[in-house]
Amino acid sequence: MQDTEILPALAELMDERRSRMVLVIGNKNYSSWSMRAWVTMKAFGIPFEEIRIHLDQPDTTAKISEYSAAGKVPVLIANDITVWDSMAICEFLAEQFSLLNLWPEDTAARAFARSICAEMHAGFSSLRFDMPMNIRADLHGKGHTLGAQADIGRICEIWEDCLARFGAHEFLFGAFSIADAYFAPIVTRFKTYGVSLAPALAAYADRVCAHPAVAQWIREAKAETESAPWHDARPLK
């Protein structure tokens, strides 16, 4: 499709889906999985209504279950279609808004991007447990267990590989993509827990935080006043 044809076609597609695109998320300060889907939609200008449900409350699961039987966030409601799980949501959006190139255009880069997102989706359990997302907090020196350090090492390896092979020293695959949205919660964790990074990776983390969609999420997370007891009350090593 020629460039002159893309904008009208995209505008028509966006109008068609604008009326009933709803994203159900948790607290922005704590919900890393919600952040991934939300940042993806914001970064690519996909319009949606936001419903935010407070986490770690007696009625949290019941409220989320009004939108998805899985009882977890995020949940995307697109007209008569319900999609739950952040990876499924991102793939659905990439399919529905293919003109926006949410994944890298190059076949090899796209395959690599999907692989690292799948690895993030399924792995890094020590980092998740020992360094839970808490954007408002300053927990420098906490959570640096052997397991978390091993996960951090693997993430740094992924970033270095992507930036060297595909990123042209901007985002992981050049232009901002689902892959950067997927690692954005990791960037916030590194800042919360004072993780030291090599200069090139620290610069990448700063670029992610400065991206308008990520910066907006961080601002709104810091403006929240609710507490999620599991995140705030449990001791960190």
Rank of each mutant, 00 (worst) to 15 (best):
S19A: 15
A203G: 10
G123Y: 02
P229K: 10
R219D: 15
W84M: 12
F166Q: 03
F112Y: 15
R207C: 08
K42M: 11
D3Q: 14
E226C: 10
P185M: 08
W38A: 05
P235C: 01
V195N: 05
D130H: 00
S65G: 03
F44L: 01
R20I: 02
I155T: 02
M120N: 05
L146C: 08
E224Y: 05
I116W: 08
D3F: 10
V39T: 04
A37N: 06
P235G: 06
L99Y: 12
N79S: 14
F176A: 03
N29D: 12
S177Y: 07
W33A: 01
V73R: 02
T40N: 07
W230A: 13
E49W: 05
D151H: 01
I158R: 06
D232F: 09
M35F: 12
H121E: 06
A108V: 12
E5N: 14
D15T: 14
W159V: 11
L76G: 05
G71S: 04
S227Q: 13
A111P: 13
E5L: 14
L127I: 03
A9V: 00
L23H: 02
A233I: 12
T82K: 04
S34W: 00
S31V: 03
M120K: 08
I116V: 15
F166N: 03
A62K: 11
E66R: 06
I53Y: 01
H231A: 15
S177H: 12
P132I: 02
F48A: 00
I178R: 06
P229Q: 12
C156L: 11
S86Y: 04
R110C: 13
A202G: 09
F124P: 02
R234M: 13
A70S: 14
R154S: 06
A213E: 02
M120Y: 11
G143R: 01
S86D: 05
A198C: 08
E226I: 04
F92Y: 15
W103K: 06
F166I: 10
D15S: 14
E91L: 08
A223Y: 11
M131F: 06
T40H: 08
M21C: 10
S196L: 13
A179R: 03
P47E: 12
I158N: 02
R110W: 09
E160N: 14
C117L: 07
H144M: 14
C162F: 07
P8Y: 12
H54M: 11
A9R: 15
M21K: 01
G45A: 09
A215C: 13
D161W: 10
P104Y: 06
L102A: 00
I81P: 00
A88R: 01
L172P: 07
E49R: 07
D106Q: 14
A111W: 13
I51D: 00
R17V: 00
S34M: 02
I64V: 14
L127F: 02
F176I: 04
A150W: 01
M1S: 13
T225G: 00
F92L: 09
H169N: 15
G26P: 04
Q57G: 07
A203Q: 13
A78Y: 09
N101G: 09
A118P: 06
K222A: 12
V39P: 03
A62G: 03
Y30R: 05
L172T: 07
S34R: 04
R128Q: 07
